[in-house]
Design a protein around this nucleic acid. Structure first.
Lengths: 201, 201
DNA sequence: ATCATTACGTAACGATCGTTATGAAATTTA
DNA sequence: TAAATTTCATAACGATCGTTACGTAATGAT
């Protein structure tokens, strides 16, 4: 299908750039806090153009969410391949700090910012965010279970609790980043958390 | 002023019950996710009655927030009076778990649920929530500094980092409660966090 | 009993929400 | 060059948002 030219007028805006613009808006304001006026203005595109390219607001958000995981949470699969559970946890925490504070105009985590509260209409999106979060937890749990088999986690360690603990810190730092915490401050929090991580120091 | 009867028609609804009803709605849906239709329906009161009693939506939310701190976060001042820093942290974490999971229809923490994202119009409320969070942190920090003076925190301990770490867990558990975590699961997370707490075991 | 004052329910306000009908402009196909 | 197809910008849709006139009912003060 490559090189095949569709009949009809060509799209005049860059779909990738429009998605990135929408991501910034959703990241800062959450799903419901972001209006279509915000989205079209950020993308520099009229309303019907966004609809024809991505569908409605919910569909657009889900595309953005997928993009967010691919483009900004790509450090997670990388972290999961590190040799020890402790290194995995440290890598995830420190990269999250960078992500949560890198862009001053949209701090915290896109995947968490919309997960807490909203109207009933936004419930499907909240559930999607909850599910995405759970998938990340499942991956981390699987990695910690492997670590137990491989011996770099003690037999007394509980991989499930450990995964949930690391993610609790992750979510807590996302909240604190939204409250204006600096990366240096968050780093101290992460290191304190890692001191609770079982295994050789 | 007690027993003094104001001129004019008497209020027919219970202000306290209306505030509690509004609290439930804000707790579940956040500030922006809660509509005035939701609030009036929950309170069983017509719109102008809410306005005349509490002012506009923002003023109502702030009254509810104050009430939330008084009625549901009252375990914090209690915790701060416990003899050791470790007991303070444990008391706060375990009571937060109970609060975050006690009401299935509005899980998590009212003070956190509205703190992450919203439209520009909701920014004043977000800032108020951020400030309230910071006040709690300041109280915990002061308590940990006292603990260092009193010797139940080692001289090498960093009270500021420790306070922020405990609150990171607190915020993280609020997110996880919103994601459906059971109190038992959250308790395991909290205990894992406490294992990172310096001092005698 | 009359007036002043407050709360009540109804009903509506302008603004914004997400969404879409519509016709002109642009491009490929034939 | 004419037909087919797609995108474009304008403009509007109905619904809901937070907020408030407005007229009536109820109470305290005189």
């Amino acid at each position: 299908m490559d090189g095949y030219e569709l009949m009809g007028r060509h799209r005049e805006f860059d779909v990738e750039k429009a998605l990135d613009a929408a991501m910034c808006v959703f990241w800062r304001k959450g799903y419901e806090g972001a209006s279509y006026a915000d989205l079209t203005q950020a993308a520099g595109v009229e309303r019907p153009a966004l609809y024809s390219a991505f569908g409605n607001k919910e569909a657009l958000f889900k595309k953005v969410l997928t993009r967010y995981y691919e483009r900004h949470l790509d450090y997670i699969p990388v972290a999961l391949q590190l040799p020890t559970a402790r290194e995995v946890a440290a890598h995830i925490l420190f990269n999250a700090i960078d992500l949560n504070t890198r862009y001053p105009e949209h701090t915290g985590c896109l995947g968490i910012n919309g997960i807490l509260a909203g109207s009933d209409e936004a419930e499907p999106v909240r559930l999607a965010l909850i599910e995405a979060r759970a998938e990340g937890e499942a991956m981390l749990l699987a990695r910690f279970e492997r670590a137990k088999v491989e011996g770099d986690l003690l037999p007394t360690a509980n991989p499930d609790t450990l995964a949930k603990f690391v993610l609790a810190i992750l979510h807590g730092m996302a909240v604190q980043a939204k409250a204006g915490f600096s990366p240096e401050t968050l780093r101290a929090v992460a290191e304190q958390a890692l001191s609770a991580f079982p295994g050789v120091r």
